[in-house]
Design a protein around this nucleic acid. Structure first.
Lengths: 127, 127
DNA sequence: TCCATTTAGTTAACATGTTACCTAAAATCT
DNA sequence: AGATTTTAGGTAACATGTTAACTAAATGGA
């Protein structure tokens, strides 16, 4: 993912910060636990990332009246601006990775990795 | 690699420390640059790992008379003992991962990952 | 020989993965 | 209601990946 990292470095974001911002932009305000699931991050990591994003004014923490343990995280205008400025470019870069392998083998790779992760066999043509 | 991590935690080693020790045990004394290449580690990481292993008495740093920049790292008896105590078990655990996917798809996975890494297409049956 | 360049290794600084431990607030059970 | 158990988040501590900057020693030339 080197080209994407280059793009992010120019905007001062890390990959995980970018991922969290994109999730908030695409799926709207959520609490930390939901973000952690979507981003495949553990709570301690996410907690630090949100703290950082909030300090830099890219997200805003809103308290939740119904459950005072929860806090809803919202992307800020500045954060949304960052997404707007870079999303198109990033999408194009990601598409190149898929192109490189070809869509078919790209799916095959993801299948194999999922299989390893879950410990369950996945049928593969000719396998 | 969870089972291997469990085994290592019991012996107080991390995965990278284990990897470095195994390399030293299998291929003999080497300087840091050589170890870094074999273990696929960057010098700053390896430098810290060797510092740690040396502090724990698992490796020994020997200075090199011909090139005073270099230092040859040697596994200590205590380090070798750790390897002896765990290598057989670790080898068996690693074999299970291969079994889980099956040798054929295991190779396929490695091929796809290599292809992504190198940016070169690799022929795949039916691809 | 003297200077410029390269190489070996270190350290600093930052973000993250990971495990352990902790608090407060909810939810559940008796 | 009162006690117990979950759940949402947070912090601490450690190892690592990564980039940048630095030292000392070797190498290559002019």
């Amino acid at each position: 993912m080197a080209p994407i990292r280059d793009m992010l470095r120019a905007s001062g974001l890390t990959e995980q910060q970018w991922r969290v911002l994109r999730i908030l932009s695409e799926f709207g305000p959520q609490d930390l636990t939901q973000i952690a699931q979507q981003a495949c991050l553990l709570m301690p990591s996410l907690s630090r990332i949100i703290r950082n994003l909030a300090q830099n004014g890219l997200v805003i923490r809103a308290s939740n009246a119904k459950d005072r343990r929860r806090q809803t995280v919202v992307i800020s205008p500045a954060g949304q601006q960052l997404i707007d400025d870079n999303l198109e470019q990033a999408t194009q870069i990601a598409a190149n990775y898929k192109d490189q392998l070809g869509a078919e083998r790209y799916e095959l790779l993801l299948d194999l990795l999922r299989e390893l992760e879950q410990g369950l066999p996945v049928p593969v043509r000719g396998g």
